[in-house]
């Protein structure tokens, strides 16, 4: 399969990239790992006259730890994120998302920025980005914005990124003690799979009162974008972290929070049912981890 002809740009700094973006605007696409974009170009699903590759901009693939947050550069790959000790320790659900994306080859190229900008409702890192309350860092020429991840996705394949903007990375607050998270994705086979449903949950409890004091639950593949399960979260907040309350929250997520559709990968009915099962299971494991944290 042939790629259409395009002009190739390889800026060495963010500034240079932003200048190009400003100049070329709609007529240029950002190339990160290329695992979505090159496929889409080959299949003629998208067209462009210019590709701006970010791979030579070192700052974009850094993972750095600050006092109470970490920064993950947009061009950090799945493999790289998964190898990061701080992520393995403090962001288990994100690591699990990265470990489950595609396969060992794709993970060496696929970036977290690409996964977010591709904005598939089934994206494997997206529920984790949601439950860790990430902030998307956007830049355009001479301008920066920070968008809470919950506001980032606007539809299937759509995000709030403007044509002259680049996603530079994410800031994730470091979870407190007594918190834990978990991610489960469900598909038909065990590798290279596009999810039928994927769910991540985060939970923090007060060891004194033994009550849930923070929870965030994110659902993938059951709406136009990955979503937070607000009603389920509300149902769990202030409850004792135990099977009954996880089940009640899961029921909320299943009945109230998700809006799946039928497609050739699965029916709405099944997806909805699985939201319940996966929510319950992710909460239970999140709590196990919180106890150990």
């Amino acid at each position: 399969m042939l790629l259409p002809m395009f002009e190739f740009h390889e800026p060495l700094s963010i500034e240079e990239a932003l200048e190009l973006k400003k100049k070329l605007g709609q007529n240029a696409r950002i190339l990160a790992g290329g695992t979505d974009l090159l496929v889409h170009l080959k299949k003629k699903l998208v067209k462009t006259d210019n590709l701006i590759s970010l791979s030579r901009i070192k700052a974009l693939s850094l993972i750095t730890e600050q006092k109470d947050s970490i920064f993950i550069g947009a061009c950090a790959t799945m493999a790289q994120i998964s190898r990061s000790p701080v992520i393995a320790k403090k962001f288990t659900a994100l690591k699990s998302g990265c470990d489950n994306l595609g396969n060992h080859l794709i993970r060496n190229r696929a970036t977290i920025g690409g996964n977010a900008c591709n904005a598939s409702p089934a994206g494997d890192t997206l529920p984790a980005l949601l439950i860790y309350d990430s902030v998307a860092l956007l830049e355009s020429y001479g301008k920066k914005r920070e968008i809470p991840i919950a506001d980032f996705f606007t539809g299937p394949g759509k995000s709030c990124i403007q044509p002259d903007e680049i996603l530079t990375g994410f800031r994730l607050p470091i979870p407190t003690d007594h918190s834990g998270a978990h991610y489960i994705q469900l598909g038909k086979r065990k590798s290279s799979e596009i999810n039928v449903v994927n769910v991540a949950s985060f939970l923090e409890y007060d060891p004194g009162t033994k009550k849930v004091i923070t929870t965030r639950i994110a659902l993938g593949s059951v709406a136009a974008t990955p979503i937070r399960a607000a009603r389920a979260e509300a149902a769990l907040l202030g409850q004792a972290p135990e099977e009954a309350s996880f089940f009640a929250a899961a029921e909320m997520a299943r009945r109230e929070d998700c809006r799946p559709i039928d497609d050739f990968r699965g029916t709405a009915g099944y997806r909805q049912a699985m939201v319940g099962v996966l929510t319950k299971r992710t909460l239970a494991t999140a709590y196990e981890r919180a106890k150990g944290a």
């Binding site: 399969m1 790629l3 190739f8 190339l31 790992g33 290329g34 695992t35 090159l38 496929v39 080959k42 299949k43 590759s53 493999a79 396969n103 060992h104 080859l105 794709i106 060496n108 190229r109 290279s192």
Partner: peptide, 24 residues
Amino acid sequence: CDTGDCGACTVIMDGDVVNSCLVL
């Protein structure tokens, strides 16, 4: 396949395996 799905095009690039059909 030419679309990253089969791995027949696997090469090692700077120490990591990649699908060479998805690298320019």
